[in-house]
Design a protein around this nucleic acid. Structure first.
Lengths: 190, 190, 190, 190
DNA sequence: ACGTAATCGAGACGGTACGTCGCGTCTTGCG
DNA sequence: CGCAAGACGCGACGTACCGTCTCGATTACGT
């Protein structure tokens, strides 16, 4: 998108540095926790200069958001329509929850925290991470996992809500059992 | 409990300062957002010395946790048993959600964020805020708002999860309508 | 001098506390050095309250000035007139220098330092410590240790100056040898 | 001397900041007195960050020692050998005392005070300020201002001692008259 | 003997400087 | 001109000491 025709002089952006930074941010987040990650630390761990990070991202949240996008893109929980609505739902949730148990959980949790005081980040987070997955879950639910007259937005809130709640509060795990249990309970709605 | 009989020498703790600090913390949180509150700022706003804050609390999270406790204690959502399980549930959720829409939402959200990197705070938060309210909701649900064989812990996760999800992600309001909707959906479980 | 006739009600001043404070100040000064002595530390070491110290002295300098006065009063270097002017001078200087090598040196050095930024203390220090000793040295010198037409004030400056210089700069000891050497050099003035 | 050939990466030290800090320290010392100078104040007055001061100096004493070195280097009291030993001595002392009456006196006095509780500073002060000037005075005296068999170290102690004594105790000025008087008295030693 | 009043200890109070750390920006030389 | 290195101005951190204050307890005097 940038550097269309004119100019394009000087040394080009180092793709190696970009990847190193995204990777370093992820690793540090896994090791020290999101809140303890710093721009300085990211640059250091990536073996890059501080300015190189700031040149392409404004905040650590943006770095980690892009890191996260990379992680999630590798394994998007797209579920083929098998005809069994509940099985599809379970499959979707299982895949989602497995991701949430890994670094992605760490990152997305931290991003959500930062988003509380950064409306721009909040919007970006919703746009790039939350909303697409809400839409995916909604379409799965629409296959018949809940009765047709149920408010799907509310159902999505309940399901993802439970996941977020457990991710943040850690009173219980977000594992494959939860997928089954949620699907089971939704299936009892008449 | 403390300072029962013996000892109790020296100048006693200033209750005025304590209240001023708790109040200032709350006000700052409402004005600037949890993440932008600082110990220095709290002390300044409370017209107290920095050491006075640190003498009684170790972190801003602890200050705000106590502030929050004060706020929540004023209006505990205890619901009399009317016999109508669903009505009780709605009442409980409405009261809960009204609180969540105010400063308490700001604070509890920030505390949850901090708790991600502070296990001690996480435990305290669960113990003092989360768990009691989970128990309250659970007992309300047990009055018959959901069928007897439903896993109440899971039901609590779904309900509070939806609230937390909306509080954090702000894709929808946490208002009295939500109370009705949730109660309605739970009521359809067979 | 104080509390002449009227009033004089209430609990009388604790002489024990006064002595303990003066003693503690001196001990701390010897142990930690003048600059590291604090009012809090003095009170603690004396087993007294902070206010008790502040009630009777305004600054640590005043406490230590009184402590010092006590020390110096114990052994005032008054020299009997033996007829041998030089011997009298040596005796006086030896006694003076012995005192200077002890805690008194520590204290007076620190007081002098503080006096640089506290004109009141400077005046008090001159009045109570410096001037009396200058007068004493001057009268000894006037016995014939230097020719009669020598400016005695200048001579005093040279002698006490050498002592102070060595006390502060520590490039050489202030010992009895110095007394002999100074007396010898003054004796060569014609 | 430093940063000779290799390395020398990163942004170079700001000479402007360095000079501003040294200057600010000096100004504050002249205005508020050595004891009231703070690292925070120096940084503020210099328009620099606190860390920038700490990066290059550990204490305010070190800052002011370097400031002082700058001041003294501007006008080193080097005296050409005129053949008249006493005249040379008077010239040297006059130049010395003029400096001592200015800010340099303030600073060196404060440094000496701090040196009482900081052996490292004491050594540095002796090495960089005291000893070179002692050597200079000694060589002047050796030109014949005092008889050849007089202990020059002692003579230096007496002369500089008088200066220091007056600087600290302020019972008399350190002016050009003093230079004449001291030279006169030394000239009477046989 | 008993109230009055100033003392005592202890320690919390509002301040402020300390020295450290992370921020986001800047200024170098090298590739 | 991108990039590493790292110094820069800034400001919050948690600590220490300042001098003041507020407690309960103690100790003399003047009724």
């Amino acid at each position: 998108m940038s550097c269309k025709v004119s100019a394009m002089v000087g040394r080009p952006r180092s793709e190696a540095a970009r990847k190193a930074i995204l990777r370093a941010a992820l690793d540090l987040c896994a090791r020290d926790g999101y809140q303890n990650v710093t721009m300085k630390g990211i640059a250091q761990a990536a073996g890059s200069g501080r300015q190189t990070v700031y040149r392409w991202w404004q905040t650590k949240a943006q770095v980690l958001l892009e890191s996260l996008t990379g992680v999630l893109a590798e394994e998007v929980p797209e579920v083929p329509e098998t005809g069994d609505a509940r099985a599809d739902l379970v499959t979707f949730l299982e895949r989602t929850f497995v991701l949430a148990q890994g670094v992605a959980g760490q990152v997305v949790t931290g991003l959500m925290a930062d988003a509380q005081s950064d409306p721009g980040l909040a919007a970006e987070l919703r746009e790039k991470i939350i909303t697409p997955r809400r839409a995916a879950l909604r379409s799965i639910l629409a296959r018949g996992a809940v009765p047709g007259d149920v408010d799907l937005e509310l159902a999505v809130d309940l399901v993802y809500g439970a996941m977020w709640y457990r991710l943040l509060n850690r009173h219980a795990e977000v594992n494959t059992d939860l997928a089954e249990e949620i699907a089971g309970l939704l299936g009892r709605i008449r």
